[in-house]
Design a protein around this nucleic acid. Structure first.
Length: 787
DNA sequence: GAGTTTGAAACT
DNA sequence: CAGTTTCAAACTC
């Protein structure tokens, strides 16, 4: 599988793609040359990742029917017949075993407590037990449901003929922790059976948000592995970002060792070498957890025969985030891929995974997922949201950086196992949010200057998967497609760069979207998700990552709203357009014939390339950041003003509120420190700003007072004539007053008074009425008003 | 709101 | 690289 083109990977900086092939298997497969030499310890050994906490090793293993060796059962365990019980003790050992069909079992051993929830009581582990029953997992639709009772339900959408049979074979195991927390996994590997992950009950509070400190005190590791049934060929979509994916194919020999292969996505050569490995579980780690015990997600893919496709990108360190698609498939054979969505909330981290299946390799699934990355020490979030756009888009949102990453994924139907465009199994769900936590994101290169970024401490994630975006700036993640003409300038790509895949290439492209755009996509996507999944997620996944309409989080609302452009001739694909120049998509602009959007991503990519060809620094910030603050900021190129004296906004220096420097070529510059004109202007500007602020404050105060008054008087008004508590004009008084005024009008008419006189009479009567009302205001009883 | 001014970007 | 043109924002009326 060619998840990431080698040439592209070679160009990617280490921050973007830093993956190493890691093989964790009992018996390194000889037919896996790429994986050879990279084998890792046995099943019981912790996954060799930099994200691992040595003190709390994580164990991910596939085992046969034989009971897992590292299984430690301290709590009660229900062992259904015909299934190997996978349970975790209160010490958060999670073992997933499939005995009936697949001979492999997965052992998930969280370090301490459950990582399914971000918050875990110090004394008790939120995840005490995990049971997994074997069964064929054929069709899985919506990744999961986060129910109100803190359950993660992994359901299968499509009914499988063998569902009944599966249930007879696979047994649903439900474990309940002493603290009332459940982790129940049913019928993994068999169709028609839901997977329910019971999240720890946290009362009214969201489980994920509660006390990071507590979570720190009780670090937990959790690994999720999904196993498909035997005789199933799993297909992992190469163009999907999944945190957890395991597809298990029927093993030729059940006794054969199960191998975890963590391949280095950077080098796809290794990927091809792994294709012929049987009984190999490929995995990848997408995220790291909190500083204490970083939760991590592992995508595992086990396939039989040479059809295995492996794309793995384990993180080397907790601060790394590598997104690599994993795909495996067997052409012309019944394929059933399983990607279990899992909500992993730990210390504000969540992993939401999508599960989907397909019965035919020809069917493709174009999931778009959300990745949210957060950390405690250095909280960051990455979110890939499902998009409703025609092309698959994977968005990654990094609240800590204001950047929004969007990965455009082009699904291909090719059956070749060695290509990124390998068919993706269809799924009723086209997009699922995926939240991955990490303490640091290394995969992106900031395009926008740092001084423009206002770091806001992200709020901790809630158990419902709430994602808070605090930054709106954009960054380029990495292009998945090979665009040689752009790659040399990869780091210079603008934040809004859309690297469209070459026609027919089947590769993936990445686009960085502005926050507003992402917000739109998020909203639409979540609507789709909610409607299609049918899940009742009160605390919800659907609600997570919802941002204000302006695309900014509450903390990010302080950012200056982007001014809409008015381009008419440039199609917003030249640097004339501020949106384009800032790497943003046009949104709510007044431009005409705009091409600065996803619909014209190809043209946009070309335009970006053209700009970069002209000036590799085109999308880099013009205003450099000084070491000591704004005083050191200066324009990178300098201005060229001739007539404005650099004291108007025509001047980029003045507009940026910085002084002109020696790099400027301006004529008659007055924008220097000692310039009296500048001082006067600045003084006036400050005064004007103060006035504006005062006016705004006054308006706000007045509005508040009016609102308060209306609020207090509304009950009286709506009460049907009742006496207004704070006003003197009741309905009755008003009616009487009107009668008095009408009486005056009639009198004037009867007396044939001129209109002016009539009006005066009416006004005078009105004045008298007011005086009576006022005079009666302080009295306990309100005398009636008589004309 | 229309027209003018301005300077960066684009073009030659 | 310099001169010219194009363009959209800033500005003025």
């Amino acid at each position: 599988m060619d998840v990431v083109s080698p040439e592209l990977n070679s160009l990617l900086p280490d921050e973007i793609m830093d993956t190493e092939a890691i093989i964790m298997d009992d018996d390194p497969p000889a037919e896996s040359p790429a994986a050879s030499g990279q084998s890792q310890p046995s099943d019981d050994s912790p996954v060799p990742m930099e994200t691992d906490v040595p003190a709390v090793p994580e164990i991910v293993s596939l085992c046969s029917d034989a009971p897992p060796t590292q299984l430690t059962q301290a709590g009660t365990t229900s062992t259904p017949t015909g299934s190997t019980l996978c349970s975790t003790t209160s010490a958060t050992q999670l073992l997933l075993t499939s005995s009936t069909v697949s001979s492999s079992s997965l052992t998930l051993r969280p370090a301490t407590a459950s990582t399914l929830t971000s918050t875990t009581p110090k004394t008790t582990s939120s995840l005490s037990r995990v049971s997994l029953t074997s069964g064929s997992l054929q069709k899985l639709s919506a990744p999961f449901t986060l129910s109100a009772n803190h359950q993660i339900i992994l359901n299968k959408v499509a009914s499988s003929p063998g569902a009944d049979t599966t249930r007879s074979q696979g047994t649903t195991t439900t474990t309940t922790t002493p603290g009332g927390q459940q982790f129940m996994v049913t019928a993994i590997g068999k169709s028609g059976q839901p997977i329910v992950l019971q999240l720890p009950h946290t009362g009214s509070k969201s489980a994920s948000v509660q006390g990071l400190g507590e979570a720190k005190a009780n670090p937990q590791h959790f690994k999720v592995v999904t196993v498909s049934s035997a005789s199933q060929v799993s297909t992992l979509q190469a163009q999907q970002l999944k945190t957890v994916q395991i597809a298990k194919k029927t093993q030729v020999s059940s006794a054969g060792p199960i191998k975890f292969v963590f391949t280095k996505a950077v080098n796809n050569k290794g990927l091809t070498a792994q294709t012929s490995v049987s009984n190999v579980i490929t995995g990848r780690v997408l995220s790291t957890g909190s500083p204490v015990t970083p939760p991590r997600t592992i995508t595992l893919s086990e396939t039989l025969g040479s059809s295995s496709k492996i794309a793995i990108s384990p993180l080397k360190s907790p601060s790394k985030l590598t997104v690599v698609s994993v795909a495996s498939q067997v052409p012309n054979s019944p394929q059933k891929s399983v990607s279990l969505p899992l909500n992993m909330a730990h210390l504000g981290h969540q992993i939401l995974l999508q599960q989907s299946t397909a019965t035919s390799p020809a069917k493709t699934m174009k999931p778009v997922q959300t990745v949210t990355v957060g950390g405690v020490g250095a909280p960051q979030f990455k979110t890939i949201f499902p998009l409703s756009t025609p092309s698959n888009v994977q968005q990654i949102q990094v609240p800590g950086s204001r950047f929004h990453y969007v990965r455009l994924v082009t699904a291909t139907t090719g059956s070749s196992t060695g290509h990124a465009g390998s068919p993706i199994t269809n799924s009723s769900m086209t997009a699922k949010p995926m939240v991955v936590n990490t303490t640091q994101v290394r995969m992106s290169v900031p395009i926008v200057p740092a001084q423009t970024m206002k770091q806001v401490v992200p709020k901790p994630l809630t158990s419902s998967g709430q994602v808070l975006t605090t930054q709106t700036q954009q960054r380029l993640i990495m292009p998945a497609t090979s665009l040689p003409q752009i790659q040399p300038n990869l780091t210079n790509l603008p934040p809004g760069t859309v690297l469209a895949p070459a026609p027919g290439s089947g590769n993936m492209g990445y686009a960085v979207l502005p926050a507003q755009y992402v917000t739109q996509l998020q909203q639409s996507a979540y609507v789709t998700l909610a409607s299609s999944s049918g899940f009742s997620t009160p605390t919800g996944i659907q609600t997570q990552a919802r941002l204000p309409l302006n695309g900014l989080s509450t903390s990010g609302a302080a950012f200056r709203p982007r001014k809409p452009c008015n381009c008419t001739k440039s199609q917003c694909l030249k640097l004339y357009c501020d949106c384009f120049a800032n790497g943003e998509f046009c949104q709510n602009c007044n431009c005409t014939n705009c091409f600065n959007n996803l619909e014209h991503e190809t043209d946009r990519a070309k335009a970006i390339k053209a700009c970069l060809d002209r000036n590799p620094e085109a999308f880099k910030p013009k205003i450099g950041k000084g070491k000591e603050g704004e005083s050191d900021r200066r324009h990178s190129k300098g201005c060229n003003c001739k007539r404005s004296g650099c004291l108007k906004n025509y001047c980029e220096c003045y507009e940026a509120k910085i002084m002109c420097s020696s790099t400027c070529k301006c004529v008659g510059c007055k924008n220097f420190e000692e310039s009296p004109e500048r001082k006067t202007l600045m003084h006036l500007a400050d005064a004007a700003e103060v006035r504006v602020q005062q006016q705004t404050a006054a308006k706000t105060k007045l509005s508040s007072q009016i609102s308060d008054l209306l609020t207090r008087t509304t009950p009286a008004i709506t009460s049907g004539g009742g006496r207004m508590p704070y006003t003197f004009v009741t309905k009755e008084v008003a009616e009487v007053t009107c009668e008095c005024l009408l009486e005056q009008a009639e009198q004037a008419e009867l007396n044939q008074q001129p209109q002016a006189t009539a009006e005066r009479m009416i006004l005078e009567e009105f004045g008298r009425c007011l005086m009576r009302i006022i005079s009666s205001a302080g009295k306990t009883d309100y005398p009636s008003i008589n004309c």
